[in-house]
Design a protein around this nucleic acid. Sequence first.
DNA 1: GGCACGATTGCT
DNA 2: GCAATCGTGCCT
Length: 188
Amino acid sequence: MARELLGLHLVRVRRTPTGPIEQVGRIVETEAYLGPDDLAAHSARGRRTPRTETMFGPPGHAYVYLIYGVHHCLNFVTAERDVPQAVLIRALEPIANLVGRTSGPGLLCKSLDIDRSHDALDLLGDELFVVRPTGQRPVELGAGPRIGVEYAGAWAKKPWRLLDQSSTFISRPLPKAGSRSSRRRVRG
DNA sequence: GGCACGATTGCT
DNA sequence: GCAATCGTGCCT
């Protein structure tokens, strides 16, 4: 799903006093979180709490959480009920009605005005959803380790951060080949 | 009730 | 390099 979402358009419909505004961004960076095995996931070891409950719910819903007491992060729940997997949306390329930066999970939520009140929102509804654009620009697939999960040991090394290398709106470049974070463990 | 800390960002 | 800022998870 993290791969499939790249290149699709995320649509956010905001109701305003003067009528609805449709914000659109092309998804250019995602990360996969495959709990309960994945120790980098909030649902690691099957941890099921009020916060992570949405991850255990049906797919096609938003999982939104507050990080560092400051920013919100938007995820799509991707697996069947009771299988706590999700895809973090990390960066958008502005297509329509987007003001402010959209490169980075916290910035993206700020620009789309998404917060905890949107947790568990149905992504098949009319407020937040994805569409496949016509004449879709091809995705130049890149992969690297996920950001900010150093604590997850071997799981932190998995190349589950996916992005479109042709986009200038990714949150940060992939680590250079040969750098510590991209080097493969080789048996000696 | 206490306390350590985070799937980030911005400023020094 | 590090502070901001607070909900969450886990312990007592």
